[in-house]
Design a protein around this nucleic acid. Structure first.
Lengths: 343, 343
DNA sequence: ACCAATTAGTAATTCGTTTTAGTTACAGAT
DNA sequence: ATCTGTAACTAAAACGAATTACTAATTGGT
C-alpha cells in the first residue's frame, strides 16, 4: 500500500544504504568518501558511489565517525557570564571562528556563576569527549575551577588560578593603561587625571601601574590628587569628574577606568560648559561599541582584546599534539588604543 | 618498568574496564548505571559496580551512547551576528538555559552573515544529528535560509520566511510601540513625538503602527509633523531632536525607535537646557543595559524579549514528538516596558 | 607458461554503548 | 523427584562509520 520502500523505519541513510545502491561494499564507499589513496578504486566506481550519495542525500554520522576515530572535533567553552555580557561576546566569536577554521564545533555553556551548573557542564563536556576546554570569565580575576578540569586540556581566558598552574590568556592591563596615558601625553597633556575602579581587581592595579609608568617614562610627576577611585558606573564617575574639574589647577585630560565611567565624565564635562576634547580630553577603556561610538564626540578608548583572546585560546588548544599537556604559560594580550575623537 | 598498567594505550576507561574490575558483565554495568528496572541486579552488585566506576573515574562516552540511542541530545544555533552583538546575547542565554534544563547541549555557529559559512554550518550540524535547529538573526527581518534546513526541525528567531512556512518567534513590535506610547499618554503627555528608523524594516512599521494605535485609542490626534525618521544612531537623532524641540508647539515627550537614538535625544535635550523628564520625557526601545542604565536619568525603554525568544524557541523544539514537524506558527512575543526614570 | 606485481575491490573487526533475548541457580509447590 | 517461578545475571546484536588484512582478477616480464 505504501509508496515508500522503507529500508528500516525512516532513519537517515547510512553508508550501507549508499553501498547497496551503488552496488559496492560499505568499505568502498568509505574509501571514496574519504579519498583514501592506499586502496585503489576506479574512477567509474567513484562516480557511481557519489551518484548514490547524492541520490540518497547521505551525509556522514559524526557520532559514528567520532566514536571510531576517537576525535570528537569539539571544543567546550564554559563561562560565567560571558555569553550574557556584551562585554565579551567577541571572545566567543574569536573562539568560534578559530574552531571553525579547524572544522571543530564549539559547545557553549553559560554557568551564570553557579558552581553546580559549572560542575555539571564540565561533566557533560567530558562525556562528549571535548578535545579542549576554554574556561572564561567576564571580569579579569582569579578563579578556582573544578578539579576535573585537569582531565582535559584547558585554557583559561580572562582569568587565572592562584598558583598559575593552568595556561591563561589575559589582557595586558599594564600596557593598556600605559597606552592610554601615553596617547594623552603625546597630545601635549601634562595634568592627566585617572579615575580608577574602587573594588580591588587586577585591572585596577594593572591600569594604574601603566598610568604611572607612562608618566614616569615621559618625566611627568605623579600627582596623587589626580588619581581618584569610585565604583565603575556613569553616575559616580560624573561626581568625581565634577570634583576634578573644580580643582584650581584643572586636569586637561581624564583617563577613565572604563567606558561607562567615561560616559559619566562626558556628562560632567558638558554640564560644566567645557568642550571635549578642546578643554578636556577623555580616554576610556573597554571599547564598548555601544557607548564609545555613540557618545559625542566618539570616545577614544582602549579595547579589551576579547576576540583575540578567544582566538588565541582555541589556537593554543589546537597547537597541542595529542596526549601532551599545555605548558602553564600566562599569555598577556595587548590592549590596543581605538582612536576616535575624544582626545 | 612502568608503574602504570595500561590496558590499551591510555584511553579513558570504558564500561568493559569497569565490568572487569567489578567482576560482572558490561551489560550489568550498563543496567546499574542506567538504573534499569526491567532486570534485577542485587544491591551488592550495584555497590561493587559503582565502586569500580569511581575507582576508574569512568564516565559514559556520549558519542557511543548517541550512536546507539539515535539521540544526539544536541541543538544547533545558527545566527548571523547574534553572537557578536550585545543586542541579542540574551537570546543565546535563553536558548542555552532551556536546552540545559533538558540535558541538551547547544552547538553555536555565527555566520557573520556569510552564506557559505551558513551552508557549511548547517551541514556540520546535520552531520552531528542535531535534534533541532534555531536560525536566528540580529535584526528582525525576512530571510531565505538554505533549503537543507527542512531536513531538521527548525525554529526561526527574530526573522521569518516570506511564505511563513517555518515557525518563527518574533517580537511584537506593534505592542511594543503601543506600550511605549501608552506609558507616555498615561503620564499626561499629549504631544508625543516619534523618531523612527528610516531604513524599511518590520520594526519600523510595527512600532509606528503601535504608536498610532495608542494615540487613536486614547483619542489623541496623530500629528504627522511629530513623526520623524532618521538613521538609528545617536548623532542623527540628536539633530532631529533639536529640530523637534524648536517647534513652536514643542512636543513634551519623545518616543525613540531605539536606545542609541534616545542617547542622542538626551544630548540634544540637555544641550538646549531642558530637563528629563520634567520638560521632555523620553522612551527608548531595545533596553540596551549599557546605554539605558548608564544614561542620566536612567532611560525608560521597551525591551526586546531576547531571552524569552531564545527560551521559547528551544521549548518549541523540545515540545515536538519525534518524527513530527512543527506547525508554521508565527509566535509574537510581547515587548515589556522597562521603567526607569526618563518619563 | 609461470611468477610477481599491480589494480580493484571486499570481509571482518573495532569504537563504547544500549537493548533484546537468553541462561543459570535456587526456592517453593506438587 | 520434578516442575514452575523468580532473582540475578550474561551473550550477542545492534548503532554507523574507519581500518586492517585479506582476495580475485588482470597485466607484465621472462
Amino acid at each position: 500500500m505504501s509508496d515508500q520502500p522503507h529500508p528500516k523505519r525512516n532513519r537517515p541513510p547510512s553508508m550501507h544504504d549508499v553501498a547497496r545502491l551503488a552496488g559496492v561494499s560499505q568499505t568502498t564507499v568509505s574509501f571514496v568518501v574519504n579519498n583514501v589513496t592506499s586502496v585503489a578504486i576506479s574512477q567509474e566506481t567513484r562516480d557511481r558511489v557519489w551518484a548514490a550519495i547524492h541520490a540518497l542525500g547521505w551525509r556522514p554520522n559524526a557520532m559514528a565517525r567520532s566514536l571510531r576515530t576517537r576525535h570528537s572535533q569539539t571544543l567546550g567553552l564554559i563561562s560565567d557570564e560571558v555569553v550574557t555580557s556584551p562585554y565579551a561576546v567577541r571572545m566567543i566569536l574569536g573562539a568560534q571562528e578559530a574552531a571553525w577554521a579547524n572544522r571543530q564545533m564549539l559547545l557553549v555553556v553559560n554557568t551564570s556563576g553557579r558552581s553546580d551548573i559549572e560542575q555539571t557542564a564540565l561533566q557533560f563536556m567530558l562525556e562528549r569527549r571535548v578535545e579542549g576546554l576554554i574556561y572564561a570569565t567576564m571580569y579579569h580575576h582569579e578563579v578556582t575551577p573544578p578539579a576535573d578540569l585537569k582531565l582535559v586540556s584547558t585554557v583559561l581566558v580572562n582569568c587565572f588560578v592562584a598558583d598559575r598552574s593552568l595556561p591563561a590568556i589575559i589582557p595586558d592591563e599594564v600596557q593598556g593603561g600605559y597606552t592610554a596615558t601615553e596617547a594623552l601625553i603625546r597630545r601635549g597633556h601634562r595634568r592627566i587625571a585617572f579615575i580608577n575602579e574602587i573594588i580591588p581587581m587586577p585591572a585596577l592595579f594593572g591600569r594604574l601601574e601603566g598610568y604611572q609608568r607612562a608618566l614616569a617614562d615621559y618625566g611627568l610627576p605623579v600627582d596623587p590628587t589626580l588619581v581618584r577611585s569610585c565604583h565603575s558606573n556613569a553616575r559616580d564617575a560624573f561626581t568625581v569628574t565634577r570634583e576634578l574639574l573644580e580643582y584650581t589647577e584643572r586636569p586637561t585630560a581624564i583617563f577613565c577606568f572604563n567606558d561607562k565611567m567615561a560616559m559619566g565624565a562626558y556628562d560632567a564635562i558638558k554640564r560644566m560648559g567645557l568642550r571635549i576634547p578642546q578643554d578636556v580630553a577623555v580616554v576610556g577603556f573597554d571599547n564598548l561599541e555601544l557607548i564609545a561610538a555613540q557618545l559625542y564626540p566618539p570616545l577614544t578608548t582602549v579595547a579589551l582584546p576579547h576576540y583575540e583572546m578567544g582566538r588565541r585560546a582555541v589556537e593554543l588548544l589546537q597547537s597541542l599534539p595529542t596526549g601532551e599537556s599545555l605548558p602553564p604559560i600566562q599569555h598577556y594580550i595587548p590592549c590596543p588604543l581605538i582612536e576616535r575623537a575624544s582626545l
